[in-house]
Design a protein around this nucleic acid. Sequence first.
DNA 1: GTAGGGTTAG
Length: 533
Amino acid sequence: MIFSRRSNLPSIKETAHRVNQLALPHGGERYRSTPAAAQSYPDAFSWVSAIRSSSQNGRFKDALCLYTRMQGSPFVPTTFAISAALKACARIPAKVSGTAIHAQVHKFGHERDVYVQTALVDLYSKLGDMGIARKVFDEMPARNVVSWNSILFGFWRAGDLLAARRVFDEIPVKDAISWNSMIAGYAKAGDMPQAESFFRQMPHKNVASWNGMISGYILKGNVAAARKMFDEMPERSNVSWIEMISAYAKCGAVHSSRELFDQREDKDLGSWNAMIACYAQNSWPKEAILLFGEMLETGDLKYGLEVESYMSRIGIELDDHLRTALVDLHAKCGSMDKAYKLFNSLSRRDLVSYSAMIMGCGINGRVSDAIHLFDKMVNEKMSPNAITFTGLLTAYNHAGMVDEGYQCFSSMMNVYRVPPSADHYAIVVDLLGRTGRLEEAMSLITSMTVKPHTGVWGALLLSCKIHGNVELGEIAAKHCIELETESESSGYIILLANIYASVGRWDDAKRLRREVEEKSLAKTPGCSWLGLG
DNA sequence: GTAGGGTTAG
């Protein structure tokens, strides 16, 4: 049955042919096929897998598209395919498609399948059509607790408290979901005494039971009672934390929000969002932005990638601007394949997206790719800017291609009229310096039209360390120390000390190291980052 | 391998 092919089952073949004329989906529910839903599959099992995986990733429209396309394949939709498709219809929600699939259920003779029938009950419950949901439910030859819970959910959703209560009492074997539906149902209806009563009677409470009570109290504005529950519960989920943080946020208790947020170990994306939103809602924009930056820093852009999956989950369509931001993100994470994929999916590639790609190639050592992209971009009549050149120079630097890099640097000014910034100089100094061309690097610095920053002098200093050049190293270190605040200069001093050591000037090395040590000891008491200074 | 609840950021 599951693996049935039309050719093996002629009677179904006929039916299937007729049903195919239904041409799902139709009416107002026309769904654009995405690449994921455009493939074809060799057997019924693969079709079902594809439909289910789309559904599991929240791509319900893809799932439905696939189901529709399965009609054109040599395979008859199985109970597995049908229940997956019904689930997608329930989640979208898609009434017309759902009803059409309901018709197919009869054509294919799945009236006795408990999975398909339960999916139908759930579909109509979610569509708010309790008349049909009840009819399907009543006609089921066999029901299990999932079927009962589905109709129970429908009555709660329809606001029919009495029917819900009656259904609950009739459920032969209740499970946690049955109980939690009652708790959450009464809580949402604002009847906390009833919610509490069910909560107390429930035999094996889980996190959701507690969360239901917490959200009920919050809804009533009783944050203290919610907090009491939160403190008493044996284990908390992300939802518990986020609910409490945002409850405090809504009543302006920013510090209480933050206190909970700080207690949260292994913060998930939701906790960060809730805290950032708390600042935003309470007019603390600076803190909101700072925390957002902190979120991106924590865990190596891990959350940046989560943001992407989050957006696709809640169905935010990626426009070119967002895609470009993600190109940049992936490129900087080293996932150049993903960056390329997104870049190629752009409806129009512009200066910003090209530059993001070139920069990514530069960071990840893909010189020829960077050059290729640059040429393509210029061919498309786009004018590169300072960022584009930073990417390209980074690429040359990564590959140690000194002459090509230097040529690129000259053409920047002469051909493209982009004045080089200190950052560009820093890259070229690094490029020259690392290959031992220290004098050239030094004269480049002296010829600079913009003021060299520590990046420039630091690049020279590092090169002097590599090649053991004391004379230029001293000059570079001197500038670095001058430009940097006292607390951050010790790194440069140590570097200079290492240069002395590498040429055998042990006394000078020792002297500098002691200097750094004394400085760090002296400033420790005042070294506060708590904003006291 | 199929079907159900929790909902918090927005």
